[in-house]
Amino acid sequence: MKKPYVIVLTGASSVGKKPIVRALLEDKELDLNYCKSLTTRPKRDDEIDGQDYFFISHDSFVKEVKEKKILEYTEFNGYYYGTSREQIEFLLSIGKNVLIDVEAQGVGQIKLILPEALCVFVEPSSMEDLEQQIRDRYNDNEFSMKHRINKAKMEMELLPLFRHTVKVDNVNEAVEDIKRFVAE
């Protein structure tokens, strides 16, 4: 039996990983299980706990970090986001392949614990396109928009550290590239 594997998908803030994540999860050949993130931010009206995120209190999050139950975590806009170490270890222990979608700075934390994880950086078509996408999405909040653009620029500086990259503009090509990376 083939050993289960972990794919870590990352990229600059607001690059548009969701269509690639959906396509990867729908690919029967990859047979991936998605690891939903934990967050301390309030649930939005259109979100479902356990489906979009696992919404937990700040105190619970801190406790999980202290108990080393969180594989990686980051703070954004005063809220914490993280990946459950227990969830990933459970999925791997029952032979399931795992897909994790994280902020770029979280990849290093994951590689320390799961050095065999396949880490893929999703590149925007161009930095100008990424900035425009952020402006369009967050135009109602000038501070958040500028914060996200600066964050995206810093995350793009991590791109040269990744052996595996895919472009966001063609989902099918990105999935095929990732499948090739898995087969290597």
Rank of each mutant, 00 (worst) to 15 (best):
E29C: 01
N170M: 03
K17H: 06
R41E: 12
K146D: 15
T40E: 01
K146F: 08
K111L: 12
V122Q: 05
L130H: 07
I149K: 03
N141R: 06
D45N: 13
V175Q: 03
D46F: 14
S14D: 13
Y81L: 03
E103A: 13
Q105H: 14
T83L: 14
T40Y: 05
M127I: 15
S60D: 15
K3Q: 12
R22F: 13
G106Q: 07
E103R: 13
E26T: 06
I134P: 08
V120I: 10
E86C: 09
F55Q: 05
F90W: 09
L99M: 03
F90D: 13
G95M: 02
I48D: 12
Q132I: 11
L130A: 06
C119V: 09
Y34N: 09
F61V: 00
L24S: 02
K63V: 12
S125A: 10
D177N: 15
S13D: 08
C119D: 08
L24W: 11
L24I: 00
K36F: 06
D31K: 06
V182M: 05
S37E: 15
L38N: 04
L159W: 13
S14R: 12
V168S: 13
N170P: 02
Y81W: 08
D49K: 02
Y81T: 08
D129Y: 10
P160W: 11
K43S: 10
I178H: 03
L159S: 11
N141V: 01
L112N: 15
E103N: 14
G16Q: 02
S13Q: 08
T83D: 12
Q105F: 13
E176V: 03
K17T: 00
F181E: 01
S125N: 11
N170V: 06
V120Y: 07
F61K: 02
E29S: 11
N33K: 10
K28F: 10
K66S: 13
V65L: 00
K111S: 08
R180N: 15
F76H: 10
F121Q: 00
Q105G: 07
N172E: 15
Y34M: 05
K167A: 12
F121K: 02
V21Q: 04
L159E: 09
E131R: 11
V6I: 10
L32N: 01
L130Q: 07
K153P: 04
K28L: 09
R135W: 03
E184Q: 12
V122M: 03
N33R: 12
N150I: 01
N170L: 01
D45R: 15
T165V: 07
M145Y: 09
I20W: 13
S84Y: 01
I7P: 03
L24V: 02
L118E: 01
E72N: 14
A23H: 06
Y138I: 02
R44H: 14
D140P: 01
E123Y: 08
S13T: 07
L161N: 14
F143N: 13
V107I: 10
Y79S: 11
Y138V: 02
P124F: 04
H147Q: 15
V171G: 10
K43H: 12
V65N: 03
F90C: 11
E123I: 10
R22E: 14
G11E: 05
L159N: 05
I88A: 01
Y79C: 00
L130N: 09
G95R: 01
E131Y: 08
L25Q: 00
L91Y: 06
E173C: 06
